[in-house]
Design a binder for these strands. Sequence first.
DNA 1: CTCAGACATTGACATCAATCAATCTGAGAC
DNA 2: GTCTCAGATTGATTGATGTCAATGTCTGAG
Lengths: 116, 116
Amino acid sequence: MDFDTSAELFKALADPNRLKVLKLLVSPPANSCAGPGSVCACDLEGELGLAQPTVSHHMKLLVRAGLVTATKRGKWTEYTLNPQGFEQACELLGALQQPDSNAAPCPPKTLQGVAS
Amino acid sequence: MDFDTSAELFKALADPNRLKVLKLLVSPPANSCAGPGSVCACDLEGELGLAQPTVSHHMKLLVRAGLVTATKRGKWTEYTLNPQGFEQACELLGALQQPDSNAAPCPPKTLQGVAS
DNA sequence: CTCAGACATTGACATCAATCAATCTGAGAC
DNA sequence: GTCTCAGATTGATTGATGTCAATGTCTGAG
């Protein structure tokens, strides 16, 4: 178990604004400029009340942590949740409670990605 | 869903040394001064290679986050994992992936609440 | 090619967090 | 009572992080 990279993953989750972002990616606002089911950076800027560079910074961290996927669609960047990142976090939580380093995570998880 | 308190919980997990502590609490070193199955602060100090006040600081955070329970046993303080804290973290991970604000996470849980 | 819009990057600043030396507290041993 | 030890608290320092203004880059429209 790599404590440093594990800590990095949890660090990505350790900010209220980033948690809001993740929540917005599951329940996108109705008036999303990238269309329903999708969220672009400008949406997040409005919803979070943060400046554009700040949003960009947070998204970079979330993508690097593997929690979010960024896809360039023309002028916009479309962000979607990455279930694998959550699965990994859940596995880590399970592993922390097991005497053996690696362990089964919470439940058998089958996540509905972001169905649009 | 309270993003601030949720972030606090993940923040407690967002440090390599604290993750090591949690791992040590599941698999205590054989030569624990508090006896097998228990871990006291002096054990952690040796295992982590950190100064005593630093260990005390980390343990305070873990206890405050609900991940660890501290019990005074005479001169020593015995630390044990608190499964409820892990359960809550797991629930948060699940809730973040569900369109509804509060949702059934890892353990089978029926929880209804307010949408933010 | 030129322009405008969407993000990313950079730089600067303020705040937070990790660390340790020094000190304090509280419990057992004497 | 005093002494000693475990660990908590305080204060200071250093590095990490969140934030925004200014600027850069890339894409589509004209």
